[in-house]
Design a protein around this nucleic acid. Structure first.
Lengths: 185, 185
DNA sequence: TGTACATCAGTGAACGCGCGTTCACTGATGTAC
DNA sequence: TGTACATCAGTGAACGCGCGTTCACTGATGTAC
């Protein structure tokens, strides 16, 4: 049956939000179209009324999911202490344990290599985050801020990815704490 | 038909080697049992004469594939300059462009989170690498070597993973170069 | 040493199964008059 | 304003397809005597 236009647009957003979460939790290949549609309360059929393919959804949800991260970083740009807190929150056990609500760089870097359709959105997001970190993080020395931002973000992404892969809670905590101490004290 | 025992053992190794390479290139879910067996020159049927399941192969090939890395790092432990060269080679474009021959930490960290069977082997390998780096890398200051090793390895793993995900060659090179400069000059 | 038989890795067709995707149908909404 | 019709998102069964895994069969090798 036909539905009001506003309702359709809202469902489109609901699909995007559910997909962004599920993809970060379980990876692109670990989530089925059916699971995504179930998370929005619909059957899997009408998915193709909203998106051309699963691949198209992957690309669009990566753009959609990255907006929140950029907004959060903009908010933190107001003060040096807020920037340090941003980094602390990033390499935290809370972030490690909630990939669905977390950064897509750490959650999906490995998957993106195998998904050409997602690479442009991922690249754009990574460039933006590095630019904001370089501009607003309170760097201590006189070295190139952009280079320092790349090194710090690489360490943050690597630490979260490794801490999630590891089988030993104390070791996982140690990885996060090491990177936290190195950049925020 | 029956085959000599030596030949059987050799085929077991060939499967492990082919699997270790393919898994790093395309991820655990991106490789089929058929592809692995084809890479060893056999049909897919006899796979189950060698391994209980694909999951069992994933775990065993992770152990198998990590041995080379540890040997390489032990060789580099002989001199400070060799350790720096180890890091340079890690964050190189050559390593980025050949994941099948490269470090499993950077290639499979994201996949391991979703593969419980592989996590013990991955964790053991990561602990070993960090221990060797902490012990033999020429750290400059008096800070905790183990903490510095974790930070450096996180940055190395993160940089290689991000450089592989990105859609822009110059940007990809820049990521590797930033981490290289930070730790080896 | 020679012979008969048991072994077991390799073969390749076949199996369930779950995936992404398609499609004929439904029926409340929006629109034309 | 009221009525008749066209629209189109949702439904849910169905489709190919490729995956991991199984299995009856083959036949050169190893072993018993």
């Amino acid at each position: 049956m036909r539905y009001p236009a506003a309702e359709t647009a809202e469902k489109h957003q609901r699909i995007l939000t559910a997909a962004a979460r599920l993809f970060r939790e379980q990876g692109f290949d670990g989530v089925t179209v059916g699971q995504i549609m179930q998370a929005t309360g619909l059957t899997h059929g009408p998915f193709y009324n909203h998106f051309a393919s699963k691949e198209a959804l992957m690309a669009e949800s990566t753009l959609h999911g990255s907006e929140h991260s950029r907004v959060a970083l903009d908010a933190a740009s107001a003060s040096p202490e807020a920037m340090r807190q941003y980094v602390r929150d990033y390499v935290s056990t809370a972030h490690r344990d909630a990939p669905g609500d977390g950064c897509l760089l750490a959650a999906l870097a490995g998957d993106v290599r195998k998904q050409p359709a997602v690479r442009p959105a991922f690249t754009f997001h990574l460039k933006t985050i590095i630019g904001k970190l370089a501009a607003h993080f309170p760097w201590q020395k006189k070295r190139d801020p952009r280079q320092q931002a790349i090194v710090m973000l690489s360490a943050m992404v690597g630490a979260v990815a490794l801490s999630r892969a590891v089988d030993d809670d104390a070791f996982s905590d140690e990885i996060l704490k090491a990177v936290n101490t190195a950049f925020t004290t």
